[in-house]
């Protein structure tokens, strides 16, 4: 119930921020739409901890800044490879076992690997990730990484 209320509140806030008009009719229409979408989400059974992971909001603000820095750092490394006239790539595939337990945690880990330039999740499973790296080093660095530990903490593990 609390999750449904949070979903409706998030949808309504999104409506107001997107429209920017504060007329009574538009505010009422927005409320009606937010409630209707919440009802539909409940009927489709997607308003669960996986579809609307509101409980992870505080943890996200701890994880995202680190992820942004990581993206900038590896983005710079990939740019350096691109401008290098010798083009020093050594594409490598690695398989490894992620330590996350929940679907949200696994998806976050896989997406973080893909977001970071230089590494790309080709296949993501409960017990195995297949990662393609631009160089041998970037590929190997995804195995049992700092990211793995941080996502584990992010999803609420110890």
């Amino acid at each position: 119930m609390l999750r449904l209320a949070s979903l409706a509140a998030a949808l309504y806030a999104f409506w107001i921020l997107m429209s920017g008009y504060l007329e009574p009719f538009l505010l009422g229409a927005g409320l009606a739409c937010a409630l209707a979408v919440t009802w539909l989400a409940r009927r489709m059974e997607i308003a669960d901890p996986e579809g609307h992971p509101a409980h992870l909001t505080p943890a996200a603000f701890g994880y995202w800044p680190w992820l942004v820095l990581e993206i900038l750092r590896s983005g710079l490394a990939v740019c350096r490879i691109i401008v290098d006239p010798r083009l020093p790539v050594s594409p490598t595939l690695v398989r490894f076992r992620p330590s996350q337990k929940t679907a949200v945690g696994l998806a976050t880990h896989a997406n973080s690997i893909t977001l970071t330039p230089g590494t790309l999740t080709v296949a993501a499973d409960h017990d195995e990730f297949l990662v393609h790296g631009l160089t041998r080093e970037t590929a190997r660095a995804t195995v049992a990484s700092e990211m793995d530990r941080r996502v584990r903490r992010f999803e609420g593990g110890d």
Binding site: G75, V78, C79, I82, L87, V89, P91, T116, P117
Partner: peptide, 25 residues
């Protein structure tokens, strides 16, 4: 730079890394 990488990289999977520079950074 990402677009230059998209042209320079040798195969499809390495090109994806170059494209992800455009998408994220």
């Amino acid at each position: 730079l990402g677009a230059v990488g998209l042209l320079r990289m040798p195969d499809f999977f390495t090109r994806m890394h170059a494209a992800s520079v455009v998408d994220t950074v």
